[in-house]
């Protein structure tokens, strides 16, 4: 590689990194200026001490976990079946799973409200539990592109038909095959999808706000309009959560014993 190519490469890297990191640095620096003249963690302390923060964050974490479980229950068998028995249907399924990227969340939520309002055949919005379920289902749809792609990529790394047939010849039924063979072998992919889902759900605003649920996204927005330093502290916390999720994906990949040979 000649010197000019190396210099250009590094220059591009520094510019891109600067583009990403300078605003983050500015935001973090500002969030530490709650006390005049010195850097402090006062804004963080106030945010974390806020009972509403704890309540909304706890709510969103619970919903994220429910979304992950729903997503895994829907996507793993679907992707497995498409790969095993219906490879011709793959483009259609991929198209379906990509729809949430094309259809805005606001369209989705208005559709939900219209379909599941109190005078509909399934009045989910008529109760808190029903609305929570609706929100979890909505989040599952929003996370579908990430969850499906992650799991489908994971399935691509193993010989699904042969492993399935091997398990069947040893007496295993579909549930055993999915639970004991397929899921453990795509666990890293499932975790990747799960952490991405978690990151999406934690900061999601539109569905939660329009369904009027006490989630972290609307809380972020509310704080942003009323206080000077706390919104920046919250943004830093949100970034930290997202990065922690990314780090956990990497960690899961590294710690996965049986996939070492494939890397």
């Amino acid at each position: 590689m000649n010197l000019w190519v190396r210099i250009t490469g590094w220059l591009a890297f520094v510019l891109a990194a600067g583009y990403m990191l300078v605003p983050l640095f500015g935001m973090t620096e500002f969030s530490l200026k709650a006390r005049r003249g010195v850097y402090s963690l006062d804004a963080y302390a106030r945010v974390i001490g806020d009972t509403e923060f704890q309540a909304t964050f706890g709510y969103s974490v619970t919903l994220a976990l429910a979304t992950i479980v729903l997503g895994v229950l829907i996507v793993v068998p679907t992707a497995f079946w498409v790969r095993l028995k219906m490879p011709w249907a793959r483009p259609f399924v991929e198209f379906l799973t990509l729809l949430p990227l094309v259809i805005p969340a606001i369209v989705l939520v208005f559709g939900y409200i219209r379909l599941y309002n109190t005078s509909s055949f399934l009045p989910l919005t008529g109760s808190a539990a029903g609305t929570n379920l609706l929100l979890a289902l909505g989040y599952t749809v929003l996370a579908l592109p990430y969850m499906y792609r992650a799991i489908d990529t994971g399935l691509r790394t193993i010989d699904v038909p042969t492993l399935t047939e091997a398990a069947q010849s040893l007496g295993a039924g579909w549930v055993t095959i999915l639970w004991r063979i397929v899921l453990p072998n795509v666990m890293v992919a499932v975790l990747s999808g799960a952490f991405l889902t978690f990151a999406i759900v934690i900061g999601e605003y539109t569905l939660a706000a329009l369904l009027d649920r006490p989630a972290f996204g609307p809380y972020l927005q509310r704080i942003g309009t009323n206080k000077p330093y706390e919104p920046f502290a919250l943004s830093v916390i949100s970034f930290a959560i997202t990065w922690a999720c990314m780090g956990l994906i990497q960690l899961a990949t590294r710690l996965s014993k049986h996939t070492k040979a494939q890397r």
Partner: peptide, 8 residues
């Protein structure tokens, strides 16, 4: 292709 379960 052997078809051993990689996770076991």
């Amino acid at each position: 292709a052997y078809a051993l379960f990689p996770n076991l």
